[in-house]
């Protein structure tokens, strides 16, 4: 019997090693090649500080901008709901913290798993609604390419399989747990080479916008 246990052992053994390698190396290459490239030295006299403005922009750009909220409230609200739900499920679910602890040796308190369960359900529904909106809204549909659908899929699958695994809706359990880990590995492998990189690069982009404006003494 080549069983679901074999599958689980592969995905959490060699499979995870491969995904971890591609993810870490890929992300570091993409970040370093941006940072090392640097920018031309600016010889003009600074009219303000870069540091404060850069940090402030990191925070202010996280809040929704009034104009876009008025124009497309669904996209903004939906975007917030699933991003927060995704991060809560990823970082506050106890078994995930256990995994992070085993990789990085750092841990923090989790929240009750039934709460994570409810948040995941909301997140999954929101992701489906966002896809529906993308497919039906003429402008969003026009702007979407294959990469958008691919990144949606690899974000959605870990949520879905995680929910199925938590409720053990697929038998046997090692199979559904293995599928969940595999879906995350798919996300990790595609992460550095798609727009998913925004999870890291948003910091550089926002910092740069804020710092540049701060140096010129204007509001960012």
């Amino acid at each position: 019997m080549s069983t679901s246990i074999d599958f689980l052992l592969w995905v959490r053994g060699p499979g995870f090693d491969i995904a971890l390698f591609i993810f870490v190396v890929g992300v570091l290459i993409r970040l370093l090649e941006v940072v090392i490239l640097g920018r031309k030295p600016d010889y003009s006299e600074p009219r303000g500080a870069e540091l404060g403005a850069g940090l402030l922009t990191l925070v202010t750009r996280t809040a929704p901008e009034g104009g876009s909220f008025k124009r497309s409230p669904f996209t903004v609200v939906g975007g917030y709901i699933w991003h927060i739900g995704f991060l809560v499920s990823l970082f506050l679910f106890v078994p995930h913290i256990e995994l992070i602890d085993s990789v990085l040796g750092i841990r923090w308190p989790g929240i009750a798993s039934n709460l994570v369960d409810a948040i995941s359900a909301v997140t999954i529904v929101t992701l489906v609604a966002m896809l529906f909106s993308r497919l039906t809204h003429p402008v969003k549909r026009f702007l979407s390419g294959p990469e958008d659908y691919l990144t949606w899929l690899v974000t959605f699958l870990p949520m879905l399989t995680g929910y199925l695994a938590y409720h053990r809706m697929i038998d046997p359990y090692p199979l559904v747990l293995g599928l969940h880990i595999l879906s995350v590995e798919l996300l990790m492998v595609l992460f550095p080479f798609t727009k998913l990189m925004h999870a890291f690069t948003f910091i550089i982009a926002r910092w740069y916008n804020g710092a540049m404006a701060g140096r010129r003494g204007v509001q960012s």
């Binding site: 959490r12 053994g13 090693d17 971890l20 995994l99 085993s102 990085l104 747990l177």
Partner: peptide, 22 residues
């Protein structure tokens, strides 16, 4: 759900490789 292998050590190597390649 947690991999058996020594992930902390492996992560260290991988970060090193990533930094070098980057």
């Amino acid at each position: 759900s947690i991999p058996d292998s020594d992930l902390t050590r492996k992560t260290g190597y991988v970060v090193g490789a990533g930094v070098a390649l980057g």
